[in-house]
Design a protein around this nucleic acid. Structure first.
Lengths: 228, 228
DNA sequence: AGATCAAAGGTGAGTGCTTACTCACAAGAA
DNA sequence: TTCTTGTGAGTAAGCACTCACCTTTGATCT
């Protein structure tokens, strides 16, 4: 077994442990067991428990979700709706696979909020950097084209409010017994999308149009306020 | 010192510890120190660390925020707006006093989401029982009077989405260095209120009317869709 | 090719320290 | 006296972390 591969196996196992039980609640023994190695070997690869944790957070920060595709879309009402819908869908998928990378990131992020919040801050900055401009650009386009109401001084706040609602809804479903039941899954997803799109100021016509027509739509981007 | 008073002092000290550092991160020694007593005495009052934690969660469940007043308001658009505004204000106040009861409840609740979620579930149920019916009744009144759009099958989902957004926004401000900055406080609060009220389907006229006029409004409850 | 050997991978029994929890005993009130 | 409040030294288990010692690998030298 090469050293690098072993490192990765340890990191993977440790990530699962830390995400489930937090830093204090995780023992090096349990990490070693999860990686099927001795504790001694664990400490040959990572000098301390803290160093292992720090490396996990750093690695998790660097990992890219597959949202680069969204960045290539040109700013428009439709892109805005797509962005929100994909966000909701993305978090729904996280819920379906609780031991996946993304669910662990969520747990680590939550734990960070209780701690010093530094990891969460890095993630927020990263999200902001990745899709912040796409969101604000699409929103201002939507406003220009009459699909949305003008917004106050901080359009990014609206993005974060949306993000908060989706993230928290996922968190309530994270425990094995969900904290809240939202009823039928596709319908509640749809309801959440509508809540957010209304919240950021899209008008009903635009919401109905872009949310119903889904992605089955050619790339010409007429504002429905003009066409309807 | 009477036994009951001592118990309360211990519970108070322990609550602070558990809220800050979680269950695993809190030592009985630190709790004893925070309560200015010996560890021995701590275990005279609570048989185990877990029992102490359980009692804190149970007590926290029973504690009533001062929202009974809201229940006495009759269902209306104005009550709905008041409810949301007070929710936003309430969480804003939590942020200002990080060592207050409510901030601790928030931390405990968050920790619960990472655990089995049982405490969070109890709290959600309690919130639902307290203001769920007031919310849905006011929302349906608003719909009847034309201040809001009709809503799907699950009106309570809208309440939770709103709650999620507010709660998560507070969480991001919980660490000493906030994870996100929303700009000017009163303005971002206002923005959050608008986001939520739009999200649950209130129309712009109703929002502008009830949010601007604040509470300086006599108890006659005309729907502004009729009067305007 | 086979022998040699140093380095790397890997183990499990320790290390000292901290943890949750106990107990003999002291002080004061009824 | 007797019961409750309170202490601080103590205990066994568990913690992060170490170390002496195996085993495997692969390059080098006959």
């Amino acid at each position: 077994m090469t050293s690098d591969l072993r490192r990765q196996l340890i990191l993977g196992a440790a990530k699962r442990c830390f995400a489930r039980h937090g830093f204090a609640g995780t023992t090096t023994k349990s990490v070693a067991a999860a990686a099927s190695i001795s504790e001694g070997l664990l400490f040959k690869h990572f000098p301390t428990k803290s160093a292992l944790y720090a490396e996990i957070l750093a690695e998790e920060c660097a990992a890219d979700p597959a949202l680069h595709r969204l960045l290539e879309l040109e700013p428009s009402t439709r892109t805005l709706v797509t962005l929100i819908r994909e966000m909701v869908q993305h978090f729904r998928e996280v819920e379906a696979m609780p031991d996946q990378e993304d669910a662990q990131r969520l747990r680590l992020m939550l734990a960070s909020h209780l701690d010093d919040g530094e990891f969460a801050r890095l993630i927020y900055e990263k999200i902001s950097g990745l899709i912040g401009s796409a969101f604000t650009a699409s929103l201002s386009r939507a406003i220009q084209s009459g699909d949305a109401r003008p917004v106050g001084r901080e359009p990014m706040n609206l993005f974060w409010f949306a993000h908060h609602a989706v993230l928290m809804a996922t968190l309530t479903r994270l425990p094995t017994t969900p904290c809240l039941s939202y009823g039928d899954a596709p319908e509640s997803d749809r309801q959440l999308c509508e809540f957010i799109l209304r919240g950021i100021g899209l008008n009903e016509a635009a919401i109905a149009h872009y949310l119903d027509r889904d992605l089955a739509w050619d790339s010409g981007e007429p504002a429905i306020a003009e066409s309807a």
